[in-house]
Simulated scan of single mutants.
Amino acid sequence: MQAAILEAFGTPLLLQELADPRPLAGEVVVDVVAAPVLPYAAEVFSGARQYPLLLPLAVGSGAVGRVRSVGPDTTRLAPGDWVYCDPTVRARDEPVAPDILLQGLIAPSPGAQRLQAHFRHGPFAEQLLLPLENAIPLGALEPAEAARWCGLGLCLVPYGGLLAADLQAGETILISGATGHFGSAAVAVALAMGAGCVIAPGRNEAVLADLVRRFGSRVRPVRLSGDENEDQRRMQRAAPGRIDKVLDLLPPLPDAAPVRAAAQTVRPHGTVVLMGGLRVGLELNYAHLMRHCITVRGQYMYPRQAPAQLIALIRAGLLSLDEWKITTFSLSQVNAAVAHTAHTGEAFQSTILLPGDVAFK
Rank of each mutant, 00 (worst) to 15 (best):
Phe9Tyr: 15
Asp93Thr: 13
Val273Lys: 05
Arg291His: 07
Gly10Pro: 09
Pro87Asn: 11
Val222Cys: 10
Ala257Cys: 02
Ser69Arg: 05
Ala263Thr: 02
Ala185Val: 04
Pro158Asn: 06
Leu208Asp: 06
Asp227Ser: 12
Ala25Val: 06
Gly65Gln: 10
Ala41Gly: 01
Gln236Ile: 04
Val89Gln: 14
Arg203Ile: 05
Arg214Trp: 04
His288Val: 02
Asp81Val: 03
Ser184Lys: 06
Ala58Cys: 06
Leu14Met: 13
Glu126Phe: 00
Pro39Asp: 12
His292Leu: 14
Gln2His: 10
Gly60Val: 07
Ala19Arg: 14
Leu132Gly: 02
Leu138Ser: 08
Glu346Cys: 06
Thr327Ser: 14
Ala35Asn: 03
His181Ala: 12
Arg237Cys: 01
Gly60Glu: 05
Ala25Asn: 05
Leu138Asn: 05
Arg214Gln: 08
Gln50Trp: 00
Gly202Thr: 04
Gly183Arg: 02
Ala19Ser: 14
Leu115Thr: 13
Trp324Leu: 09
Cys150Pro: 06
Met193Glu: 13
Phe329Val: 08
Phe45Thr: 05
Ala316Phe: 03
Glu323Arg: 09
Pro143Lys: 09
Asn134Trp: 01
Val37Asn: 07
Ala58His: 04
Leu208Ala: 06
Ala147Met: 10
Asp81Gly: 02
Ala41His: 07
Gly62Cys: 09
Leu208Val: 05
Gly47Cys: 08
Gly183Glu: 04
Ser184Gly: 02
Leu55Gly: 09
Gln16Asn: 12
